[in-house]
């Protein structure tokens, strides 16, 4: 495992990636924009005043389609099937919750050792809450089985020294986690939240 691999994994563990969703929304937005603008251009008569006065579903085009009915039908059905499959894939991909992979520490046959995502979370969170200035900690495993990573969310008390905690996380909590799991590398993303856990009411 190389250094840059570790770093990119810890960076991508910071938050769930929305790249797919953003790309799909952009592509559909772009298609809608281009089709709308093209229809406006035709309607404004920039492609010929005669063209602008023709019906949207031009009888000439319909005639042409009717002449190649078999090809047109097969092409349309294939396009429809592709839309159906792609649409359903997108739908379930967006609905799927973020994975919580278990850590496979030893995959040797006969002495395999797996730590479940829940066990890691509870143990490391309890440890992180012991750090001075941390009021609440939440830990979860992210990524996939081959490339697991940890995401640590820490809520700090108002006025606590962020720099000290920032320095201490790796040397205390994460070092202990690595030692107890017996791994050398454990890509980790840490999210610090300040003063959001406890609110003081006005008395």
């Amino acid at each position: 495992m190389t250094r840059s691999d570790d770093e990119s994994r810890s960076a991508s563990a910071l938050a769930r990636s929305y790249r797919g969703e953003r790309v799909l929304t952009s592509v559909i937005g772009l298609v809608a924009l281009l089709v709308g603008v093209a229809a406006l251009v035709v309607g404004a008569g920039w492609l010929g005043t005669y063209r602008a006065a023709r019906p949207v579903l031009d009888p000439m085009a319909v005639d042409w389609l009717v002449r190649q009915a078999l090809t047109a039908r097969i092409a349309a059905i294939l396009l429809g099937l592709a839309m159906l499959v792609l649409g359903l894939m997108w739908f379930f991909r967006s609905l799927r919750p973020e994975a919580r992979p278990d850590l496979a520490l030893d995959s040797t046959i006969g002495k395999g050792l797996t730590v479940t995502a829940g066990a890691i979370s509870a143990a490391i969170a309890a440890d992180a809450e012991q750090v001075d200035g941390v009021s609440r900690a939440r830990v979860r495993a992210v990524g996939d089985r081959e490339h697991p990573a940890l995401r640590l969310s820490l809520w700090l008390r108002d006025g606590s020294d962020v720099k000290t905690i920032w320095r201490e996380i790796d040397s205390t909590v994460l070092r202990r986690a690595r030692e107890s799991l017996g791994v050398e590398h454990l890509p980790t993303a840490v999210r610090l939240e300040l003063g959001a856990a406890e609110r003081q009411r006005v008395r």
Partner: peptide, 27 residues
């Protein structure tokens, strides 16, 4: 209906404008 609706009709222009606007909003 589409076979009798010309490109330069108001309905078509409004639809095209709304479609372009929605596309821009999505982007």
């Amino acid at each position: 209906e589409l076979g009798s609706l010309p490109w330069n009709s108001t309905a078509m222009r409004v639809t095209a404008g709304v479609l372009a606007g929605v596309g821009l909003l999505l982007l």
